[in-house]
Computed example of a mutant assay.
Amino acid sequence: MDPADFYSGIVVDTYARLKSSTFDPEPYVRFVQQHGEPALEIGCGDGEPMLDLRAAGLDVDGVDSSADMVARCREKAAERGLPTGVFHQRVESLDLERCYASIYFAGPTFNLLPDDEIASRALRAIRAHLTEDGAALVPLWVPDPTPTRELGVTRSTHDGPDVELRYTPVSELFDLQRRTRVTTARYERITPAGVEVSDREWLIHWHTPSGFRALCLAAGLRVVSLVDDETGAPASEASTAFTGTVTAG
């Protein structure tokens, strides 16, 4: 899935995801099968792809910072008859009862952590919840500025036959020094009963490969691999989408 589609699909309150593509569960299935169970999905949202992994017979818990999404995930799990643990916590302050052989972010959720300090705390929390032989998968993304021609342009999709979801990027601040992109966006949910509107600011904070390695080292994690998602080769400083696999140091 393209990272831009992932971010246009971020959930607003109890709205369904506005997105143009879905998660492929297979890479996460393979990761968990390789590194073992139990597994933890960070930023599980409303259960995609976590519930598919559960349906495949894998022992996977989920955690998300949105209480609305945790509730929605539990509802979807119940509808599918899937037992699972889903927790309402922030990744930088994880406090779960068990450790995990596999921990992964589904999509570049790590980029939503607003600065290096919180990212460092998140990595330390992951380290504390890994088994000694466990591994974590961290997809990362270096964004471009949103093209000016796209600001003010609405994208839409449907959540069922009578619900239209609209996403409009309104304005943006792009800061190379801070490595942040802050997009002000309008979300609309249109139903026969009326229109719900929510204006939000979404901050993306990115990391270079060398910067991510340094954060991991400080958190007691060892970077086993850092792979460019487009080429499959080791990530370079020019890579804009890459995935890190880390283990306890």
Rank of each mutant, 00 (worst) to 15 (best):
M1S: 04
P3W: 01
D5V: 08
F6G: 04
F6I: 06
I10W: 04
V11S: 07
V11K: 10
T14W: 03
R17P: 15
S20H: 07
S21D: 15
F23I: 00
F23V: 12
Y28L: 09
V29P: 07
R30E: 13
V32L: 06
Q34H: 11
Q34K: 08
L40V: 07
E41C: 09
I42C: 09
G43K: 10
C44Q: 02
C44F: 08
G45I: 07
G45N: 06
E48L: 10
M50I: 06
D52W: 03
L53I: 06
R54V: 15
A56E: 08
D59C: 12
V60G: 04
G62D: 06
G62C: 12
D64A: 03
S65P: 10
S66W: 06
D68F: 11
V70K: 11
R72Q: 15
C73L: 12
R74L: 15
A78T: 08
E79F: 01
E79I: 10
R80A: 03
L82N: 04
L82T: 07
G85Y: 09
R90I: 08
R90Y: 11
E92Y: 14
R98V: 13
C99W: 10
A101L: 06
A101R: 15
I103Y: 05
Y104N: 09
A106W: 04
G107D: 04
N111A: 09
L113S: 07
E117L: 13
I118Q: 15
S120K: 10
A125E: 15
R127C: 11
L130F: 12
E132N: 14
G134T: 09
A135P: 14
A136F: 05
L137H: 05
L137C: 01
P147Q: 05
T148N: 12
T148R: 15
E150I: 05
V153G: 07
V153R: 14
S156F: 10
S156T: 02
S156K: 02
S156I: 07
T157C: 04
T157N: 12
H158A: 13
G160R: 01
G160M: 01
V163C: 11
L165Q: 01
T168F: 06
S171Y: 05
Q177M: 11
Q177E: 15
R179F: 00
R179Q: 12
R181N: 14
R181Y: 01
V182K: 01
R186F: 02
R186I: 04
Y187V: 02
R189E: 03
R189A: 01
R189D: 04
I190T: 01
I190K: 00
T191I: 08
T191Y: 06
G194V: 05
V195H: 03
E196C: 08
D199Q: 00
W206I: 10
P209K: 06
G211A: 14
G211K: 07
F212S: 09
R213A: 13
R213F: 11
A214W: 11
C216N: 06
C216P: 07
A218L: 12
A219E: 11
L221W: 01
L221D: 08
R222V: 12
V223H: 09
V223L: 09
V224R: 15
V224H: 05
D229I: 02
T231C: 03
G232Q: 04
A233S: 09
P234V: 08
S239C: 10
A248P: 01
G249C: 13
